[in-house]
Design a protein around this nucleic acid. Structure first.
Lengths: 182, 182
DNA sequence: GTCTATAATTCGATAGAC
DNA sequence: GTCTATCGAATTATAGAC
């Protein structure tokens, strides 16, 4: 099954790129197959249909850092820096975000990521557990909004921010959403 | 030309709804025509092609308020409240945002809106004119991020915020991006 | 496992009658 | 101005040879 594994991995890599750059509907199985240097019918054979292929390509782990040793007033900066690095190095989240706008499966995946990964983290550091859901929602607005403007809409002033400046601006916002007051 | 005007307006209204709920590629001319109770060929006759129809449907004015009489420390709250109201009452921006993810014409329209409407406003209230572009970009990340999570992704905790709570949380962020320090 | 051929849809766009 | 009919292209998905 070694040959098969290699083919499957090539398909997934090509799918992630196409879904990230073109969105769900404009990314065609034909183009993905061409990128992976295989026949389009192989994609169907391995993944059944386009939706299942997307689901496999959009598997995503935020790899959130362990914040137990981070001082409470440094959480925002650490998280902002983490997301910055995470996005630059993996286009899966961009693919997910682009697709989520029209594809319900992608929307549900994003819901699951925030409920399963962001939510628990915020619950551990929020001052009042009852506020945790609202706080993680606000976190999402700033994190996803930044990714939207920088990587998808490519607004010039947002693209122009270097990592340091971005963390300096976004960090305090995240900090306030995590454990600050309105 | 009265009949013609009525038909054109009906097409535009239906187009806005479909583009907002389905995105650019999934919104079909056939469906838009059916919603407007006219023949699909009429859409082509009046607007030439799908892209021009979208351009006409995505005409958008943020209607930003005159902030000359607003105290400097109230700008964030006033702007946050304004955007909140503006989105609830007009789905054009949602259509624009949904389409911008895959359609270059929509992306350019958003660029133009921020350069032509948000930019000048920020330039008037920012402490240092040289920082104005970065500040308006940051503003965009929070404003669009909020709209994305609330109206498109529909993240439950963000949907659950009432107007008052949303302004209380988002207002200070906008305030800091407008005239605060990192 | 891999590829050819093609079925079955769907959509944007056009031509032309009335 | 409005509608019928249809073209041409693109796409997902399947059947089956090798």
């Amino acid at each position: 099954m070694r040959r098969s594994d290699h083919t499957r991995a090539a398909i997934l890599a090509a799918a992630r790129e196409r879904f990230a750059s073109d969105g769900f509907e404009r990314a065609t199985i034909r183009a993905i197959a061409a990128d992976a240097n295989i026949d389009p019918s192989m994609v169907m054979r391995y993944y059944g249909n386009k939706e299942k292929l997307f689901a496999a390509a959009a598997e995503f782990d935020l790899r959130l850092p362990d914040l137990s040793g981070t001082p409470a007033d440094r959480l925002g900066a650490v998280l902002a820096g983490h997301f910055m690095d995470r996005w630059e190095g993996d286009e899966t989240l961009i693919a997910l975000l682009r697709a989520a706008v029209t594809q319900q499966a992608a929307t549900e995946r994003i819901h699951a990521i925030f409920a399963g990964q962001i939510g628990p983290l915020v619950a551990r550091v929020a001052p009042d557990p009852a506020e945790a859901p609202a706080r993680s929602g606000l976190l999402a607005t700033q994190i996803l909004g930044f990714a939207l403007c920088r990587f998808i809409l490519k607004l010039p002033p947002v693209v122009g921010l270097d990592r340091e400046a971005a963390v300096a601006w976004i960090g305090p916002t995240i900090q306030r959403y995590l454990n600050g007051i309105p």
